[in-house]
Amino acid sequence: MSNKIRRLTSEDYELFAAMDTGIEDDYIKLFFERFAGGTNRLYGLFADGKLASMGGYSIFVGRYAMLGRLRSDRRFQGKSLATELMTHVKNEAFSAEGIRWVGGNTEEGNLPARRVLEKIGCKPKLTQYAATAKEVEAIERGEEVWQEIHSNGRKKSWLEKTYLAKSKVFPFQCYYPFPASDALFNENTLKDWTFYENKAGDRFFVTKHDQKRTHYLHVAYPWNDAREQKGFWQTVASAKQNLEDELGEEAHVWMDIPKDEITGLPANHPFKLNSVWVLYEAEK
């Protein structure tokens, strides 16, 4: 019997639940309906009438498609089904209206997923830590906090110089970094994000609220010299406190730090560095 690939809907949940993936407490079970609709797509490869492999993509700002949610039934392993499926998914993503970039972001140690991405023509672009900390007070030095930027013109000027000029990867959401483009920095995002600038006017960073089970103050800083910048960590701590006051809940700090720039953190930093991710991108 030949393999069949089709788009999945929320009505296909039971087919997914019947897969033998070996993953306990799979988060996809909780959000299957969401991942099958809206700006998300799920596809399934059927072998011998059973769902043998599943994967899909999510669309961001109408321009980017991030591949993911790859799951394989262990009873069908060794037949390159995941590669066959994700080749189809990648082609579907590129054919979607407005999509200019397709890629995937996976943990450095997830060798099966990395092999699939490479087999379908994706190339590694950036390896970075998803560095998280419950508190940053330990690295504060009692210095003056940075000023908040309110001018959209000033915000756009900073983004142009540091991210857009060279299509530098920007951490749009936790787990979702993309090569910078004007589409990422629209009026809504500029309004929802908070920008800070130091007194000398030669450094800035962005903070955003994100939630991946835990609430995070997601910090985007385009240099690797944070430990040398007076008031940087005081400002991060202050922004974190503001977020917690707004939410009425605890929040952690998240920073995406390229693997070769980790020395930019202070020696006594509180960040967990056990989560390393590789961003891949594909050519159309």
Rank of each mutant, 00 (worst) to 15 (best):
F35M: 06
C174M: 11
R75M: 08
Y129Q: 05
L273A: 07
Y196Q: 08
C174P: 13
H150P: 15
E197K: 05
I257K: 02
N110G: 04
H215L: 03
V61N: 07
T214R: 11
K123Y: 14
W223P: 04
Q229P: 04
Y196S: 03
E118Y: 02
K230G: 10
G104M: 02
T39C: 06
A82W: 01
D12P: 04
R203P: 05
T189Y: 13
G68E: 02
L81F: 07
T106Y: 03
L30R: 10
E84T: 11
F35I: 12
V116A: 01
F32E: 01
D73Q: 11
F94Y: 04
A183T: 09
N105S: 05
E281M: 05
F46Y: 12
E140V: 02
P112S: 08
D210I: 00
D20P: 15
L111S: 07
S53D: 08
D48G: 14
D202Y: 01
E246K: 15
G78T: 07
A65T: 04
E148G: 09
Q211K: 14
R115G: 04
R100Q: 13
W277V: 15
K272C: 07
Y176L: 09
E187Q: 04
S2N: 14
L42K: 00
G231D: 01
T263L: 12
E14T: 12
S80Q: 15
R115C: 12
S58Q: 11
H218M: 15
